[in-house]
Amino acid sequence: MRTRAVLGSVFGSIAVLIIGWQAGAAALTSNQSALSTGLSTSGTTTGSSTTGSSASGTPSPAATPSSGSTTASPKSSTTSKSYTGQSVNTQFGSVQVRISVTGGKLTDVTPLHLTDFGGRSVQISNYAVPILRKEVLSAQSSHVNSVGGATYTSEAYLSSLQSALDTAGITS
């Protein structure tokens, strides 16, 4: 290989690696949820919901509507409110979910953070979470079966969900 090609390769590679490194560092220090999965896109949009730890039980009037579907409804009973569950730690990373409640019913579960320790945990999360969400929404409670092959994720997900349900005052 010629000198110029060697130098071009070396410096080009260094530049590309530094860019990658910097992008990675930025991603690590910024919102962790942006890193964890592609499912968490809606998790960072609400800023006015109550959290499980504050446990005030009084939802903010500016609570974000659930996926915009209920914004047209003026009735307070159908206004969507969101509650954030506690963060539950597992050996594969922490899990935290936010729920949307409309008219006393659980209408959506959004993961804020999922097990993300290594690529496979993320994969497991991506695979298990849609199943859990579906089951939870139909059962209207956290009393559903764990997803096979995703025990840690399932249990952490369901307990974070339960804390959010407690905050929202929904009992099954």
Partner: peptide
């Protein structure tokens, strides 16, 4: 030749950008 080598580094950079470091 440089582009070829840089593409290999870019593959590594993808992982770094994901927080691989």
């Amino acid at each position: 030749v440089s582009i070829s080598w840089i593409s290999a580094s870019a593959a590594v950079a993808l992982y770094l950008a994901y927080g691989g470091a």
